[in-house]
Amino acid sequence: MNDTILVVGAGPCGLSAAHAAATAGKRVVLVEKEQVLGGAPILSGYARLVPSGEWAKDAIGRMVKRVEDDPAVTIRKGSKVTKLEGEAGDFTATLSNGEPVQAGAIILGTGFTHFDSINKPEWGFGTFEDVVTTTQVEQMIGAGKVYCPSDGRVPERVCILLCVGSRDRQIGREWCSKICCTVSTNLAMEIKELSPKTDVYIYYMDIRTFGLYEDKFYWRSQEEFRTKFVKARIAEVTRGADGRLLVKGEDTLVKRPIVIPFDLVVHAIGMDPNTDNPEIAKVFGIELEKHGFIARNEHYTGSFATNRPGVYAGGSALGPEDIDTSISHGLAMAMRAIGDLNALARKAA
């Protein structure tokens, strides 16, 4: 029986799981494929987080430091698990540098991959410099200036297109990415704060600012920051004679076609399954669900279990998830893993 817990992925979910397991008295090995800890919020340079409003580098930075300072946690950056043998209570994982890791349980916080807008070419990303993604706008806000990449001017008018890479059978994304509505309304407010004269329009099919995000983000951006919400799914983004982008579609509330000029078009990109998931499934011997996220086993009594006993998955590895929930998943998985290890120990005794 091995008492170590192997945590794969050092994003909000993995960092939370690693710390939780360590505080509960277990030894933890934390493996991260990148050279930097923190996951998507750090790697993609998010600005202020939903819903706390704290800067990502501060909030996630605290999570990173907490784990780095913990003597019970061994960190392996720039590493992947390449092989897994054994069973619950007695796994041997091999890292990409050849190092073997003995562990009793494995927690996967392997996260997601941002949708690549190049897969919706009709919306102009990759064709026009002034078509950007929400991630790029996060970075602009982090740097303190919203601008058009083509010439650096401050945009008079910005539109955010929702559901880019979500809810779209054409490209096999039959899921709602859950958080983009809230992120977009948050960005709309941040744009307005940096540049009060900029008008922000959000093109939507539905607004899904779930739970308490409703008034804090949707209502506030509309009522206090005067974001305009237009019900239209855009057909095409082109460029007009004056160089400004033209957003074409049908406004279904006016029942008329629209061709509206914009300076900056922002894709609210969704959450794809981690592009490494097929490899992860193979290495850990677990199944993926039909969209390509990690398949969750029965949840009511076997929360966060995969189909392989002793291997747990949570956060955005299971499907689009927000940061706060991913952190909770990390804590919950540590609880599950330790509980199952204790049961194994009792059985052995």
């Binding site: 005067r226 406004d251 076609p257 629209i258 061709v259």
Partner: peptide, 13 residues
């Protein structure tokens, strides 16, 4: 005549 809307007046409201 085309029914296309080609611009908004952002300050009308």
């Amino acid at each position: 005549k085309p029914r296309t809307i080609t611009d908004y007046d952002p300050d009308f409201y």
